[in-house]
């Protein structure tokens, strides 16, 4: 489908080119309009702002943000797990909010600020959450890890912004960033290796470094 769109077009180019060199007159009489009679899926121009860089693309409208990042911008840190919003491996941060990049169309994000795992830190300058995942063994195979880390970074912002969760006992008061809060808020990120307890510990360490005391503001705009 759209993942293969670039390949398909180049292959068609080769086939047409090959036929033309072998039997140009026959092709000219028998094949006019052949390429245009195959309905082409609609495409649209789009500008994606990813990790501070602007990219102009023309994409099949069906292209998800996930496929745009991986197949067109070759930012393969963001992973495709279930492709249905159930596993969280594709989590990226758009305008400060974590979302499933598999369940949104690239054309819906023209000009929005997208942060992927590649934009959080680099091997030389790790994001504090990346460093904490390494320190606490927050992964085994690593496939879900980019999504886990993007989600974890956004979760701490959500707690600081006073956004309540299912396990928040008093939704009017300030939110206590407990281990239970971390686990509930991370339930959209599945880890089949089962590194959950270490992920929660990594998050607690980063939160401890960022927030003094156990309580953060419960106010929200």
């Amino acid at each position: 489908m759209h993942e293969a769109a670039d390949i398909e077009i180049s292959r068609r180019g080769i086939l047409v080119g090959g036929a033309a060199t072998v039997a140009l007159p026959a092709v000219a009489s028998a094949e006019p309009g052949r390429a245009s009679s195959v309905p082409q899926p609609p495409r649209m121009p789009i500008r994606l702002e990813v990790n501070g860089e602007s990219h102009s693309l023309e994409l099949d409208t069906r292209t998800t943000l996930l496929d745009a990042l991986r197949e067109h911008l070759h930012l393969t840190g963001t992973k495709k797990g279930c492709d249905h919003g159930q596993c969280g491996a594709c989590t990226v941060i758009v305008d400060g909010r974590r979302i499933n990049s598999c369940l949104t169309l690239a054309v819906m994000h023209d000009g929005e600020a997208i942060t992927t795992i590649e934009g959080l830190g680099t091997p030389d300058r790790l994001h504090p959450m990346q460093a904490a995942f390494i320190k606490h063994d927050g992964y085994q195979c690593g496939y879900c890890t980019p999504g886990q880390i993007c989600s974890a970074v956004a979760v701490l912002d959500e707690i600081k912004a006073g956004i309540p969760s299912h396990v928040t006992e008093d939704i009017i008061a300030s939110i206590r960033p407990t281990n239970l809060e971390m686990r509930e808020r991370m339930s959209g990120n599945i880890c089949r290796c089962g590194a959950y307890s270490n992920i929660a510990e990594a998050m607690a360490e980063v939160l401890g470094a960022e927030v003094s005391g156990a309580e953060v503001s419960g106010e929200s705009a």
């Binding site: 919003g85 969280g88 979302i99 989600s151 309540p164 939704i171 959209g188 990120n189």
Partner: peptide, 16 residues
């Protein structure tokens, strides 16, 4: 309403 909303889906889905 707050309680019902946060009982549904995941954080990522609720953001969209």
């Amino acid at each position: 309403l707050s309680r019902a909303l946060v009982a549904g889906a995941s954080g990522q889905l609720r953001n969209k």
